[in-house]
C-alpha cells in the first residue's frame, strides 16, 4: 500500500514538472501589462420594485413557487403549504431560532403544529434517515440575485449543504432587502474573493432535467419543489 501511494505521488510530481515546463516554455517573457482591455456589458440600473418583479418572474419561469409574505404570516404560510402537501415533518437548520426574535417566533409557531426536527446530527451515520425520513426542509438564505431569479445559500455548521438538497421539498426564506441586481455586482459588493466558505450554492429552481427527449421533468435528484418565502416589508 505504501509503495503504491508513493507511485501516484511520483506520477503526479513528474507530470506537474513536465506540464508546467511545456507551458512555461511558451509564455516565457510574456508582458501581461499589454493584454487588451476587457469591456463588460453594462446592464441598465433597475428600481428595487423592478428587481423584485424580475426575481419572482425568473423563479416562477423555473417552476419555483414564490410566496410574498410578512414576518407575522411566515409560520402560517409554511403550515398551509405543508398541509396541502400532506407533510407533517420539517427539518430545519439548528439554531435557526437563535438568529432573531422573528425566527424564534416562526419556529415556536411551527413546533406546535408539525414535528420539527433540527439538523443537529452529523450526516455520517444518518444518511438513511436524511434520505428516507425527511420529507421537507426549511432553510435561510444569505441574499439573492434579481437577473436570474437566484437564491444564494452560504451553508455552515448550522445549515448544512444537504439541508437544501436531500429533502424533496425545500422552503427557503428570502429577504427582499438583500436582493442584488446580478451575480457580477453581488460578488463585487460583498467582496466574495476574500471569504468563500466550504461551499456556496446558487439555487434558481427545483431540481430538473430535460435529458429524455428534451422534455422537462422536475425532481431529478434534488428537491421536487422549491417554495420561496419572500419577505418584503
Amino acid at each position: 500500500m505504501t509503495n503504491k501511494t508513493t507511485d501516484i505521488n511520483v506520477i503526479s510530481r513528474r507530470a506537474r514538472g513536465n506540464i508546467l515546463a511545456k507551458l512555461k516554455a511558451e509564455v516565457g517573457g510574456a508582458d501581461y501589462g499589454k493584454l487588451p482591455q476587457e469591456t463588460a456589458y453594462v446592464y441598465p440600473e433597475c428600481s428595487q420594485t423592478d428587481n423584485i418583479a424580475q426575481f419572482i418572474s425568473e423563479l416562477e419561469k423555473n417552476h419555483a413557487q414564490v410566496i410574498p409574505t410578512t414576518k407575522e404570516q411566515m409560520a402560517e404560510v409554511i403550515l398551509e403549504q405543508l398541509a396541502s402537501l400532506n407533510i407533517t415533518q420539517l427539518l430545519y437548520g439548528e439554531k435557526l431560532d437563535e438568529q432573531s426574535d422573528y425566527h424564534r417566533e416562526v419556529i415556536e409557531a411551527l413546533k406546535s403544529k408539525v414535528t420539527l426536527q433540527p439538523y443537529d446530527f452529523s450526516i455520517d451515520n444518518n444518511k438513511n434517515r436524511l434520505f428516507n425520513e425527511c420529507p421537507a426542509a426549511l432553510s435561510n438564505s444569505r441574499c439573492s440575485i434579481a437577473a436570474t431569479g437566484t437564491i444564494v445559500l452560504w451553508p455552515d455548521e448550522n445549515e448544512p449543504r444537504s439541508l437544501s438538497l436531500v429533502p424533496p421539498v425545500h422552503f427557503v426564506m428570502v429577504d427582499a432587502h438583500k436582493l442584488h441586481a446580478d451575480f457580477a455586482r453581488l460578488i463585487e459588493a460583498e467582496q466574495w474573493q476574500d471569504k468563500l466558505p466550504t461551499n456556496v450554492v446558487l439555487i434558481s429552481g427545483p431540481s430538473k432535467t430535460a435529458d429524455i427527449q428534451q422534455t422537462l421533468a422536475y425532481g431529478a435528484h434534488g428537491p421536487k419543489a422549491l417554495i420561496v418565502l419572500l419577505l418584503n416589508s
Binding site: 436570474t148 431569479g149 461551499n199 456556496v200 446558487l202 439555487i203 434558481s204
Partner: peptide, 8 residues
C-alpha cells in the same frame, strides 16, 4: 439564464 444549481 442560469442553471438550477451553481455549486462552488
Amino acid at each position: 439564464a442560469i442553471s438550477t444549481y451553481f455549486n462552488m
